[in-house]
Computed example of a mutant assay.
Amino acid sequence: MTFQEKLRHALDLCQDSKIKSYDYQPPLYKLLWRLGIEKAPPHFTGFYENWISIGTITGIPWTLIMAAPGLFQDVSRSDFFPLLVGGCCSSVFYGYLMAKRCERQAKRFGIPLWKDFFPPE
């Protein structure tokens, strides 16, 4: 079974549950799938993997957005450092919250880990 077939079954399973589509198909995950990156949906991965991936996927763009105004002004490095720390802290916190939410929903609706998910062919 190819990754795309397994992904389709996984998304169907999530759709049959009461999980909202933007939770199990976040826009950045859709982008990764279109680019050919084989990343399991967030509800099918473990807590730590979600924490790292969601924190990174959202943290890097968020930090760049926060730092963008400073790039076009005469800002010293000492003024730039708190923006980077703030972006990193917010990505760690956001990643933790979203990973916990995915873990709780997966447990509530009986969604297995990706390695344990064997849909019918």
Score class of each variant (00 low, 15 high):
M1L: 07
M1Y: 13
T2Y: 14
K6T: 09
R8W: 14
R8L: 09
H9C: 06
A10Y: 02
A10V: 06
D12G: 12
D12S: 13
L13H: 03
C14Q: 03
Q15A: 10
D16C: 08
D16I: 06
S17C: 13
Y22T: 10
D23W: 12
Y24S: 06
Y24E: 05
Q25G: 04
P26I: 07
P26L: 04
P27H: 05
L28G: 08
K30A: 07
K30S: 04
K30N: 10
L32D: 15
W33L: 11
G36W: 11
K39I: 15
A40S: 07
A40M: 11
A40C: 07
F44Y: 12
F44W: 08
Y48P: 09
N50A: 07
W51N: 02
I52C: 14
I52V: 10
I52R: 08
S53C: 11
S53W: 11
G55E: 02
G55W: 01
T58D: 07
G59S: 07
I60F: 09
P61I: 05
W62N: 05
W62H: 08
L64W: 14
M66D: 06
A67V: 13
A68D: 09
P69T: 11
P69V: 08
G70W: 03
G70H: 09
G70Y: 08
L71D: 10
Q73D: 11
V75E: 15
F81V: 15
P82E: 03
P82A: 04
L83Q: 14
L84E: 00
G86Q: 02
G87S: 04
C88T: 09
S90C: 04
S90V: 05
S90Q: 13
S91M: 01
S91G: 05
S91E: 02
V92N: 00
V92A: 04
Y94L: 12
Y96W: 15
M98V: 05
A99N: 04
R101G: 05
R101N: 12
C102D: 13
E103A: 06
E103I: 04
R104T: 14
K107E: 12
F109S: 02
I111K: 00
P112V: 07
P112N: 10
L113H: 13
L113S: 11
D116T: 05
D116N: 12
F117N: 06
E121V: 15
